[in-house]
């Protein structure tokens, strides 16, 4: 492989000790999806801008040559491609073939283009990694598995996520990332407008 300026920086920003760091970061990611609305802190990856630390950690922890990755909007840069390629070997694919897709909410929309799974294999569905400016536990009200009573989370949009939950057991699963912070919204979570209660 030719070592260019790009590939030198691409080689940096990965986990220091892959097996143990990936294990720790996976635990946080799993906790997030198991407890929708709860905010976890990730670390150990420094991806090229504008990719957040949290999104970078998810990519390093879950992506490899077996997973198609879609980079949307301002995330489809040569630097990000090189970084992802070097650390994971994940192939870049169009949205409709993606196992994972990364970008800002507007760039990833509309949700209908992603794989939602089939009735016999609802797991064959995409996971969307959404870059946010900030993430906080206020806003939409969340209920469903993983939530004892109810939780709150700042979401980029409510209607589309309501619709997604109605498709269960089909549907998409979401990670919301802001800097090192991560929260998740699997398809089981029912979303209603906040402040109503």
């Amino acid at each position: 492989m030719l070592v260019t300026a790009t590939s030198t920086s691409a080689m940096q920003g990965g986990f220091n000790n892959v097996p143990t760091e990936a294990a720790r970061q996976f635990r946080a990611i799993m906790n997030a999806i198991a407890r929708p609305g709860r905010i976890e802190t990730l670390g150990g990856a420094t991806p090229p801008a504008p990719m957040s630390v949290a999104a970078g950690v998810i990519v390093l922890t879950l992506c490899d040559p077996d997973t198609g990755l879609h980079l949307a909007g301002d995330h489809d840069t040569p630097d990000i491609r090189a970084w992802v390629q070097f650390h994971t070997g994940a192939p870049f694919v169009p949205a409709e073939n993606a196992n994972f897709a990364i970008g800002r909410w507007e760039a990833l929309s509309p949700l209908t283009i992603y794989a939602h799974g089939t009735p016999e294999y609802p797991d064959r569905s995409a996971t969307l990694i959404i870059e946010m400016d900030a993430l906080s536990t206020d806003g939409a009200i969340l209920t469903g598995p993983g939530i004892e009573d109810s939780a709150s989370l700042s979401l980029p949009e409510i209607e589309a996520l309501k619709t997604n939950a109605l498709l269960f057991p089909l549907g998409l699963d979401f990670f919301f990332c802001a800097d090192t912070r991560l929260a998740s919204l699997p398809r089981t979570t029912k979303v209603t407008e906040g402040g109503a209660i």
Binding site: A22, A23, F26, M30, I33, L62, S125, G146
Partner: peptide
């Protein structure tokens, strides 16, 4: 491990 982890996450989502 990554393959198993992805399966665990889908399992938690469904």
């Amino acid at each position: 491990k990554r393959m198993i982890r992805r399966a665990i996450l889908k399992g938690l989502a469904i």
